[in-house]
Computed example of a mutant assay.
Amino acid sequence: MAEEESPVSDTLVEITAVSLERSTLEARELMLARIAALAAVDAPPASYLLNVGAAVEVGITLEDVEGILVAVAPIVGTPRVVAASGNLAVALGFAIALEAESETEAED
C-alpha cells in the first residue's frame, strides 16, 4: 500500500510544530493566543479543528474559549465573534463525530 501524500496538511503540521518549539509562551497561553488569532482572522472550521486537540490537551475549556471571544469582541467585532462561535461549533461537532466513529470501529 503506497504511503498517502498530504503535502498541505504535512506543511501545516510542520509550521505548527516550529511555532510551538520557538514560542516562549506556556502551552496553555499559546493555545489561548491561537484561538484568539483564529477568531481575529475569521478562520474556517477546519482551522479550529486543527487546534482543538492541542487546546484540550493543555486544559482549555469551553468556558476559556467563551472568555477569549468576549475579550477579543471589542477588537475584532461582533461579526467575527459570531462567526468564530459557529465555526468552532462545527469543528467540535466534526471532532466528536470522528471520535465516535473511531470508538465504533474499535468495538468491531
Rank of each mutant, 00 (worst) to 15 (best):
L92Y: 12
A17C: 00
P79L: 07
L69D: 03
A100F: 08
T16S: 03
L38C: 09
G67P: 01
R22Q: 11
V81T: 15
S6I: 08
I35K: 08
I60Y: 04
A54L: 09
A54I: 03
G67S: 02
A27R: 12
A40C: 04
V56A: 08
I68N: 05
D42W: 08
E21N: 08
L62I: 03
D10I: 02
E99A: 15
D42V: 07
V52H: 01
G67E: 07
I60H: 04
A89V: 09
V13E: 03
V13K: 06
E66H: 09
V72C: 03
T16R: 11
R22Y: 05
E5K: 13
V82P: 03
T104K: 14
P79S: 06
V81I: 13
P44R: 13
G59S: 02
T11M: 05
A83T: 09
E105R: 15
L49C: 01
E14V: 02
V65D: 03
E26Y: 01
E21T: 02
V52E: 03
E4V: 12
A33R: 14
G67Y: 05
V58P: 00
L32I: 08
A39D: 05
I68Y: 03
A71E: 10
L20F: 10
V90H: 10
V72N: 04
V18P: 01
A17M: 04
S9W: 06
L50H: 07
F94N: 15
E103Y: 09
A55L: 06
E57T: 00
A46H: 07
S102Q: 15
L50P: 00
V41L: 07
L25W: 07
M31P: 00
V90F: 12
A39S: 12
L88V: 09
E63Y: 05
G93D: 12
E4A: 12
L50Y: 06
E99P: 04
A33D: 10
A55Q: 06
A27Q: 09
T61V: 03
G67R: 12
L49T: 00
D10A: 11
E14L: 02
A33S: 08
A43G: 08
V90S: 10
V41C: 09
T104Y: 09
E3N: 14
M1H: 14
A54K: 11
S85P: 02
P79W: 07
G86H: 12
G86K: 12
V41T: 13
L20G: 05
A83Q: 14
E21I: 02
A106G: 12
A39Y: 03
A39C: 13
V13I: 06
V65R: 08
E29C: 01
E63V: 07
A97G: 14
V52K: 03
I96C: 12
